[in-house]
Design a protein around this nucleic acid. Structure first.
Lengths: 198, 198
DNA sequence: CGATTATTTTAATGTAGATTAAAATTTTTG
DNA sequence: CAAAAATTTTAATCTACATTAAAATAATCG
């Protein structure tokens, strides 16, 4: 048995499949992408995908899990790297945006959560909720330490996350624009958070 | 023939169907909603829908057209009612947000543009682009008249529109929250546009 | 009311695309 | 290199809807 090597190979291919699927879902829409569309991108046959996922529902689920994981990672890094609430928020946004438009992407837009089977749906919803809550806590910490203006963290959080989540809708891989987004979005999204200079 | 009366009746029913479809699409996802799901909401049969739209593709298309029209209307009102660039932007956002969460909604999230047939897709894309451009022009006018801070209007526009477009993802008809959104979103989204008080 | 038109339903049909089983191929390992 | 395991393909099947035609019902009008 080629235990370790095989698992690496398998995981690598699985990963490529998830990225291809995310690309298709974002560009062609969920219902507009057949498994053949996904597999063709990798020079495979649609049936081959079933070696890696149980069915299409699971493919979507895995894409969403990966999207959630990448977001979680960005938030964790932001929390670790920022010295105060504002910086944590700023860095999280920067990291997350970078993932959305960078080579680790594409990140699947979670447009089809309702079509997931109950257990998967609940898991994705739970992890999403946790993410939102995490961001709200960052905002609160910033309000507490004076680095962020007093605001409704729920609404502010939704506004900022919406901007980030919507990026794949209008960004389609243009490298120059990717740089622009990474450079400008963090400032744009946090401009309203800064206490007015006194 | 009952010319006028019939057309009213027909249009009214058509309108109800579009709203029901938008509700389903936003809540269950596009691929997750069958025509039966839509028709059931109105106490109809799936086949009845074909009296109002040619097919499912057209149903989506009409939903998107309606969404675009509502957005356009909000922008027009904002432009008319605002005294300077900032106010135009602020009011447009307020009007659009109000539509998104109000009784005129639900507004369909345009998640499935790629599945539209070419002509419909091009039309929707064109109207979307026009909308984006319109908002960027508002921002530019604000920069010119000094009511808005100097910024990249393209990126800023994308950020703000993303927040608005994402609303149906997390808002599901709770009346209290609707009020909150209408009250807070315009300020949150424009907070970063104000020139720092001197 | 009786006739005409508008709307909806019933009952089939058609089809794309998901899924599967078995065979073929490729990769790994000893 | 030969055997075993891993990966992919070929070739069917299967099924959930979308779609349609014809019949039935409801609304409107003279």
């Amino acid at each position: 048995m080629a235990r370790v090597a095989d698992e690496t190979r398998f995981e690598a291919q699985r990963h490529r499949i998830l990225k291809a699927a995310a690309t298709c879902f974002n560009q062609k829409g969920f219902s507009g992408t057949s498994l053949k569309d996904v597999s063709r991108q990798l020079g495979l046959t649609d049936a081959a995908l079933y070696y890696y996922v149980k069915n299409k529902e699971e493919l979507v689920y895995q894409c969403y899990l990966r999207a959630a994981e990448l977001g979680r990672e960005a938030m964790e890094r932001g929390i670790n790297d920022g010295a105060n609430g504002f910086e944590k928020a700023y860095l999280y946004i920067a990291y997350h945006v970078e993932i959305m438009v960078g080579k680790r992407g594409p990140v699947a837009i979670m447009s089809e959560i309702p079509t997931l089977k109950r257990s998967h749906r609940n898991e994705i919803l739970a992890v999403s909720r946790r993410h939102s809550t995490g961001f709200e806590e960052i905002l609160e910490s910033g309000i507490d330490d004076g680095s962020i203006i007093s605001c409704d963290v729920r609404m502010t959080g939704n506004a900022i996350m919406g901007s980030i989540n919507w990026i794949p809708k209008w960004f389609h891989g243009n490298a120059k624009m990717a740089k622009q987004i990474v450079r400008e979005f963090p400032d744009i999204l946090t401009a309203g958070l800064k206490p007015t200079a006194t």
